[in-house]
């Protein structure tokens, strides 16, 4: 419901050139629009951050079978921020989206337990999922943002498995929306969002108008744990299932992974008793 628009009063405001009145009415309308934000959050299922990663013997990728998976930590932060916006009554609805195999539904359930209202699962399996790149994901996110009439897309800055740091930026580009990446603070100011960004050696504050794309950095918030009452109630929330083709997205790979290798094993060090010995050793090895 929009504030009742009193046309007569509007005309009288214009004629008496009471600019503040017009500004006030406009900001009231925008304030109302802000309180009705529909937020789209991307949640990716990745190998749990605490698991030791093993490379496949044929160097084609990493071992994922039988390995503990959980929600990408940056996606958790993005989800938490969306819930906080809803708790501040700035957002009215949160939609959690995940692209991936059937197990991605578990990740969506976690998001629902954290406070999302409903989920969308874009099922991508097997070889297609292995070859999926941030470009594919951002095409799906962009299409969903339009279909669902979202005003705000919040994503993690990157996933801890691919480390690409591309999905948020490309989603914004495809939608032609402003973007605020590496967010460490999001506040509402009149008709826009003020976002503090983490940049090399400091912080940058930007203003973005809506609709917009935000990507979450590590210090944005501390995500909550899902407790039993929330987990149980999340079971009742709806997850819609789709295929990438439903959004007209072609999953043909645009790049090929040539090889994945373990980082080199660090060589053992040597202990020296004195500086003289250290200098002698360095001379021997030709460093000094």
């Amino acid at each position: 419901m929009w504030p009742i628009f009193d046309y007569g009063r509007f005309v009288s405001i214009i004629s008496s050139s009471d600019v503040y009145g017009v500004v006030w009415m406009r900001s009231l309308a925008q304030l109302h629009k802000m309180a009705n934000l529909r937020v789209l959050v991307g949640v990716k299922r990745v190998i749990d951050y605490a698991v030791k990663i093993r490379v496949k013997p044929d160097n084609s990728g990493v071992v994922t079978d039988g390995v503990k998976h959980s929600m990408n930590p940056f996606c958790e932060i993005a989800m938490e921020e969306a819930v906080r916006l809803k708790e501040k009554k700035l957002a009215k609805e949160i939609i959690a989206v995940s692209c991936g195999p059937a197990q991605a539904q578990e990740t969506i359930r976690t998001a629902l337990a954290m406070g999302a209202d409903r989920g969308i699962h874009v099922e991508v399996t097997g070889k297609e999922y292995e070859n999926m790149t941030p470009l594919h994901v951002s095409k799906i996110m962009a299409k969903l943002a339009q279909d669902q009439e979202a005003n705000l897309v919040i994503l993690g800055k990157q996933s801890i498995d691919g480390d690409n740091n591309q999905t948020g930026q490309m989603t914004a580009a495809l939608l032609d929306w402003p973007q605020a990446t590496f967010a460490s603070e999001v506040t509402k100011e009149n008709d826009h969002l003020k976002v503090v960004r983490e940049i090399d050696g400091g912080l940058e504050t930007v203003k973005v108008t809506l609709p917009a794309v935000i990507t979450a950095d590590l210090r944005l918030n501390e995500p909550r744990y899902a407790t039993l009452p929330n987990i149980m109630k999340a079971k009742k929330k709806k997850i819609a299932k789709h295929k990438a083709a439903d959004f007209g997205v072609d999953l043909t790979p645009t790049l090929e992974v040539v090889g994945v290798e373990d980082p080199p094993v660090r060589q053992a060090g040597q202990k020296v008793e004195s500086t003289e010995e250290l200098v002698a050793k360095l001379k021997d090895s030709g460093v000094v």
């Binding site: 819930v83 809803k86 708790e87 009554k89 949160i94 337990a113 954290m114 406070g115 999302a116 209202d117 909550r224 899902a226 407790t227 009452p229 929330n230 109630k233």
Partner: peptide
């Protein structure tokens, strides 16, 4: 109640 129902106010 809010703590038991993330996001609802």
């Amino acid at each position: 109640c809010r703590r038991e129902n993330n996001g609802l106010t």
